[in-house]
Write a protein that binds this DNA or RNA. Structure first.
Lengths: 230, 230
DNA sequence: CGTGGCGTTGACCGGGATCAAGTAGAGTGG
DNA sequence: CCACTCTACTTGATCCCGGTCAACGCCACG
């Protein structure tokens, strides 16, 4: 587990970034870093809540299961982002799971300390509130999409979200390695359907593939698929 | 517009309830009350954000449109609850609509004042944070349901939520008057489908109707429909 | 060389949306 | 008091999107 400097943390971590300068040393003293392997489960739905996490590096998917073999990916937490914060004020049980989709390091502070921080450090609480309001808007949009938007639009929107969050490689591909299964779970559809839809999008010239990597060839047309012009 | 006493507000209003005693007079001085008629639109998706609302009496639905004639009801705000708070830290445009489904009175504070309150009154900010974490958990459960749960389960869950939120009349019926259309939008399904599903549930002895009023005859079986036992 | 995971594709089918039409009340005007 | 309209409820017929199942190819890895 590599040692990190305060400066590095300030840059990367949602907690430090939004926190008063004077508090950062105290937080760093409490934060623990864990290395996570690709596919490693960080916590699971139903587990007792221990604390709050931040992504230092790598990518973490936040997901919710249905039955034995179905899941919905709610969001991806990338560098600097908080996750596990939905546990705040809950019943002490995680309502979602978190799994690394790309190896990295996650930071962790125990719930007690985090809660104390919230109560004292009002700046941070305020910023977290804004962040969660944003989360809520995204969730609600996604809810509506799941209820009314056809799969093609949902896949299009998923790709746009991924592009916005992870950016592009120098070659113009969406800068995340994601299994088709995960893309399907993120779109709220099945593996096979997403596969077919992606093929359609390629036929229509909106996407280009290179191996597993996806490139958006026609952003505007893709965006149009996510609209509700009836 | 009837005059309200401080005491009444303290009891009913999310803002006052979670606020420091010393702040309540200042808040009351800023709060405006509006009478709303059944079906009256309080604000609409796309409108510029003016402020934050609280339900003093009546019931307000928070909903999101799709195309010309489809919507998804995200939640109902009943007495004491806040709504419009998703606008916090956003782009200044409401991402959802709010409409009264039962006549009543809503309180309103302008965004500037509300924001100032948040920054100063840390207790309230903390409580609101907890409230929004709860909102988020509910949203995410609903997202998963829309993605994976069949309509029958969604209707069952919708009815359970309504029962929990609004309670029962002395006769044992869910204490809210809701059009089938609204129930459908809340379940994320069409009018006709919800109608058929309710009939099935009556056939199976899980529900009893009396006019438009719905009574849950077998709570445990209804609850079982919302589970994911594969 | 088998074996297991993932990608790929076709065939099938069923839940639920859509369309269409009929009924029942609740107001409204003559 | 009756006809008329309008909206909400009710129900059947049809259709199609997308989920399910099954099979095969491919490649990595033990």
């Amino acid at each position: 587990m590599k040692k990190v400097t305060i400066i590095e943390d300030e840059k990367n971590c949602f907690l430090c970034q939004n926190c008063l300068k004077e508090w950062i040393p105290a937080i760093l003293a409490h934060k623990k870093n864990y290395k996570v392997k690709k596919g490693e489960v960080i916590f699971r739905e139903g587990d007792p809540v221990k604390g709050i996490f931040f992504v230092k590096s790598g990518i973490v998917k936040v997901h919710k299961r249905w039955g034995a073999d179905k899941e919905l990916i709610l969001r991806f937490a990338s560098e600097g982002l908080i996750f596990g914060h939905r546990a705040l004020g809950g019943d002490g049980i995680y309502s979602i799971s978190a799994t690394a989709v790309q190896a990295g390091v996650v930071s962790y502070v125990d719930m007690e300390f985090f809660d104390a921080t919230l109560k004292v450090n009002t700046n941070f609480t305020y910023d977290l509130l804004m962040f969660m309001a944003q989360d809520l808007r995204i969730s609600e949009r996604k809810m509506r999409n799941l209820a009314h938007m056809p799969v093609k639009g949902r896949v299009a929107e998923a790709l746009i979200i991924l592009k916005d969050q992870f950016g592009l490689t120098p070659e113009g591909f969406i800068n995340i390695e994601l299994s088709r299964q995960d893309l399907a779970s993120f779109s709220g559809a099945t593996y096979e359907t997403v596969f077919r839809v992606i093929n359609e999008l390629i036929q229509d010239g909106l996407l280009v593939l290179s191996g597993k990597s996806i490139s958006i060839a026609n952003y505007n047309k893709l965006l149009k698929l996510t609209e509700d012009i009836a």
